[in-house]
Design a binder for these strands. Sequence first.
DNA 1: TCCGAGCCACTTTTT
DNA 2: GTGGCTCGGA
Length: 760
Amino acid sequence: METSPPATRISDLAAARPDFFRGLNPEQEAAVRATQGPVLVLAGAGTGKTRVLTTRIAHILAQGLARPWEILCVTFTNKAAREMRERTVALVGAAAEGLSNLGTFHSIAAQILRRNAELVGLKSSFTILDDDDQTRLIKAILEAENVDTKKWTPKSFAWHIDQWKNKGLTPDRVKNDEGAAFAGGRGVKFYQMYQDRLRILNACDFGDLLLHNLELLTKHPDVLERYHQRFRYVLVDEYQDTNVAQYLWLRLLTNADRNLCCVGDDDQSIYGWRGAEVDNILKFERDYPGAKVIRLERNYRSTQHILAAASGLIKANAARLGKTLFTEQAGGDMVRVQGLWDGAAEAQFVAEDIERQKKAGRKWSDMAILVRASFQMRAFEERFVMLQIPYTVVGGPRFFERAEIRDALAYLRLIQSEDDDLAFERIINVPKRGIGDATVQKLLQSARLAGVSVMTAVRDLIETDELPGRAKTPLIGFLRDYDRWREQAKQVAADELIDRVLTDTGYYDMQRADKTSGQTRIDNLKELGDSMQAFDNLEAFLEHVSLVMDLERDNGASSVRLMTLHAAKGLEFPVVYLPGWEEGIFPSQRSIDENGLRALEEERRLAYVGLTRARQEARISFVANRQVYGRWTSQIPSRFVDELPMENVEAASQTGYQSSGGWQSQESRWDRAGYEPNYTKRATDNDLSGVDMSRLRPKSAPHRPSAPPKPSAKNFKLGERVFHIKFGYGIITEMEGNKLVVNFETSGDKKVIDSFVERA
DNA sequence: TCCGAGCCACTTTTT
DNA sequence: GTGGCTCGGA
């Protein structure tokens, strides 16, 4: 995007703001000044990475090395892009507004693709599908191919497609992997069909934005050359989170000058499960020979004990570049570890501590609870409601994913573009117009046959006798409305338009009839309208919505933050609570089952991320008993607890925790350190007789304590019959080390770890 | 077309 | 334990 010269003359910048470098430490300054050639900045948690990136941009501009639009700066989230822009503006003023190529991978890729769409067989007006559209489309394809969509769910296939796209694989390049075996080896074929359908619909999913870019830039050297001339400096945030496609994209776009600066932290790579390759950052020096590597290790966030605890923990990981954070804030509180009886006790403990902190002068928003998985949040929410502690769940269901918002957007999309068949399908019978499934299928089929959009097919069909009158009448009415909205779209603002559509169609009435949550939905729709006012036209708004799936909503009042560890990355709080540090929960058993050691290291990085969010206090807790999916299970402390360096950790007294003992071959030190057992008889691995569980356990459900994992192999044999707490009885069909494949009687083949099954 | 029973699955999640 | 989805009957 060419932009007129910025209001501030760039040559004035250095004179106007000679103080870019003030307050930077020597490493940060080196990272800013090393403008030429490849640079990897290994920025540990809380070491001022964003500051380096923004100052670097400012410096490049001030030196006159590039004009704003010649800097390509990519982030993962819109929030990060926004923050980067704001902070750069703060440094260089209006010049930063010309940074038209500062954005997320997806938004920049979309920009490039819109400008060159024809070259990869799309029209520049292509629509960007979200997850929901994607899943519906896949479902339609699978059903048309007579696939049992209960066994082979559209969601799981969508996941495979994403994984392929993350790796930069088009259908012709997919190997015989797990996804290819989908529905009896037809995975690749369905992938191809899906891509074909997208092209007909003139649509892209998120993965396509990158994938089509790769095709475009590889097959059209002239286009690539143009971008090489444009992008003189490339900056990448959170490099450890890049997937293969993004990695290739960056390699392509970096020109012969190799002015590439990647900032990241291998210890904070927590998105491997969605395609991120820690390897990208680990092999940077090999990819870009002669690269400068600058380590930022001076931490400005946390106290000494917190930092040392986190550092000690992450040392257990093998695959890392190695950094040691240090701080000048000596002392401070030690990390506290607290064992508790069960989930309710844990919630109570945390809530009471939060109240104590509040009384001692902290704000609610100074405190955050970071959990591994969202199901853990409920216990805390219940407690907070009871005690009237204000809290906010960060993350969670997104505004634009709500059904009513998606309905409204589908109307807008259809008005914007008659070809948007997916939008048509979504709203043609919402609210109910008496156009049932049979009619819709007929319309789709007829459109497919004629090779036209569904709207065109509707216009054609109502001229014929092919549709029964009861379907025809509402369709004629719908078309009349539709044509009117299209006219109005040219005259009224987008928010006004949507209001009319929702009124005309009876959508508001339909919601008003719903006494339970209708009003909330109407409020959400009003909010949608408000957010549209900032856009000049419908097109701009829809582009924004498809790429920026978040809506800035300030949470007003101060409240305790409750979120997943993943959502906490990049944030910081004076006080952080880290509950649920138990084997199986954190590290997550499922992760380990699926990806073994690789996943375990990622879980450990997650623990590292959690700890390093804390500025002054970090409180870890675990429980002896937890109800998981309605079943009581006895828990053992996470191995991460044992990996914390003892000298930085304080085990709180007055616990109700009685260790189950010996969860590893060596005795866990938490068996001894500072605990005051409440129960006289010691609970062992398989015997909880000394523990009064009856008050906790529902009488109807027979209690079956889960077998704690043991490192020692149980010497199972192929063909042996085993029992698994979750899957029941089955026969071992494959074995590899401690990993088993068991054919369960009720749930078929599953991969499990031997310690989780017993001889039947 | 709507509603209730039954069945299933159930980690993390941006764009 | 729970929510989401499908299927079958009214």
